[in-house]
Design a protein around this nucleic acid. Structure first.
Lengths: 205, 205, 205, 205
DNA sequence: AATGAATGAGCATTCATTCAT
DNA sequence: TATGAATGAATGCTCATTCAT
């Protein structure tokens, strides 16, 4: 089994394997039926393990959902940061961020559903999430915009954090719409559309 | 406020009163604890009625949530449409839409929570909602943008529906952020910030 | 209104009329759905009155069922007694009893259902019933048999009460079978069949 | 008692044991309070298990009742058939049937109550039952009578199925009466009484 | 580690009954 | 008398979690 390819940090490790399997199974089940309508037994069955085994890896059903968010977010941020930091021009950097955002979620419909739907379905989750993963992400955008302002590329009459939220909100809406549209179109190209407005506005020049 | 129409609708009408009370109570309870964590008994207690009475006015707990959405959405759209249709210039019209969006939700935190959180927490709800109320709303924005394109005011190299989604997404994110920020700032002024970007883009001119 | 035709004892009496209506409605509803699955509201609707009105005439849902039994039983016994007492020969008297039993129940399927099914569905009801109405009925049969024994017409090597139960059981089974058979045949003629066995036995002579 | 077959079926088998325990507990509870007045919690407590455990063995409360009928009926029919088929003379065979009927029910008051009372308390149950278990039973009696007619032992001027119902009805009434009589007498001897009439009729010879 | 049988708290909904009008 | 809105106790069933094996 060349399973080591996925994560060289924890290779050939039974514990990690089963944890992964549960997380993957839960993502599918949550995406299909929603967090509250999913049974731990469904997840166990999907993962091919016994119900009780779930509790050897997670303290509760809720913790599974948390783990899905955190792991995906960490993964996304660490992977993105690398790619983004190399980029010189702030516009290109924002473009990369937008592209990655839509590419990653557009590549895994189930994960996207969990992010767009389940994550939003509880103030509790949202608060926790917005204090951690989301904050980091928004911060990356904010800093880029700030840098653009300092470079004189971006307008200075706006709070960079507000700009960041606007960009995020627009991208987020693209994802949500994509999920709800049954006959799925490719999501990634929408990045360019969002950026056309975000960069240049809607006015005819 | 000279909105006498509201009083005319409820001429000390028992049925309407109690229905309203349940809807109001449910909005509060759902906002506090989330739909799935709210008990019908909580709603009844909050409304000051017996558990069973809830079922004289609503078929199920789910129907209460639906009613909250539908009523609020209908109200919002019908009220907005009036105000918006009078406006000549498309930019002003979009500005009005954005202002109303944030004013209405910023005026009722609980309703906003239900809209931003509970409505999003289930693909089922989202699908239903996005097929009805939300579609109408987005359509109003889309038509305005289309009109602007025809007038040569707005750029023609973008689908108006995409622009509409971008604007909505940005506004939506403002609301969500406002809800999650504990020490609440006024929401409505954010409309102007969103429009600055939406109209003119982020580039320094 | 020629409603007086039914019962000259209580003519044109509002109280009686409504009581009757409830009893009739309840018989229908109980026959259709069973006692436990019938709602007081169903009975009220069938009777064309408000739910609360039922409680002006009956203390409880249970009392309605009791009243159906008692009234039908009283009616049956008083009507039967007259007809039966005139009859000279004990065999003819038993024949009359059997015929009346099947005629009365065969003439009113709904009442029959309530008697055969609802009355049997609770030891409590059965005990009460078997102590009153049923006991009277069985007693009429028993006395007739006893008389037959004294006249030397019927065999003396059996307890008359046992014979009465056997006859009743056989007739009762005819009714139950008739109810359960969808494409209903006439019930009354079965009296003769039962009596052929009861009188003469099954042996070839 | 040399009924070793019963022990062979339950070789300290957890599943069977608990299923049995629930069935036994339910029979007792249903007999005591009636099906509709029995709570699943009552059954669980009587069986010494948790409420939820009931649902590991039965899909619903209704299924428990069905299982009681079906199991008892199957048991009765299969056990009876063996004993009956050996018997040569049709009269002796009917006698055996009657004796077994009363012996089996007379040996287990609670099961008898469920059969005589709960089974009868709903047209739905009765219809199902009369289409399956009861039909088989009646058929055994009918065939025996038919055989007797062919042998010239029984009178030919009656439908054998009617005779079967008459015999069943008489026996059934014996059981019901026995249940309702508090100071219980032995039930089995009543078989002979019923047969005296069924075979020879009530006339003095 | 893994299992899956057992647990029992939890809850939406129903409906007999009441009572203000 | 009659109404029917309001009540609130009652319960079958689910499912996250535990634990003996």
């Amino acid at each position: 089994m060349s399973r080591s390819s996925e994560h060289d940090k924890q290779p050939r490790n039974g514990i990690t394997d089963k944890r992964e399997a549960i997380l993957r199974a839960a993502t599918k089940v949550f995406a299909d039926k929603g967090y509250f309508n999913s049974k731990v037994a469904d997840i166990a069955k999907e993962a091919g393990i016994a119900d009780g085994t779930v509790y050897l890896y997670f303290k509760s059903k809720e913790e599974i959902l948390h783990s899905i968010f955190n792991r995906a977010m960490e993964e996304f941020i660490s992977e993105s940061r690398e790619e983004i930091e190399k980029i010189e021009k702030v516009e290109d950097r924002l473009r990369k961020i937008a592209e990655l955002h839509l590419e990653k979620l557009g590549a895994d419909r189930e994960k996207a559903v969990v992010f767009q739907v389940e994550l939003r379905g509880s103030t509790k989750f949202m608060e926790e999430f917005s204090a951690t993963g989301f904050a980091s992400y928004l911060d990356i955008i904010r800093k880029t915009i700030e840098e653009g302002q300092n470079q004189g590329v971006f307008r200075k009459d706006m709070h960079p954090i507000t700009c960041a939220k606007i960009l995020f909100g627009a991208l987020d809406e693209m994802v949500t719409n994509w999920i709800l549209s049954k006959n799925s179109y490719p999501l990634a190209p929408m990045a360019n559309e969002v950026l056309k407005i975000f960069f240049g506005g809607i006015y005819e020049k």
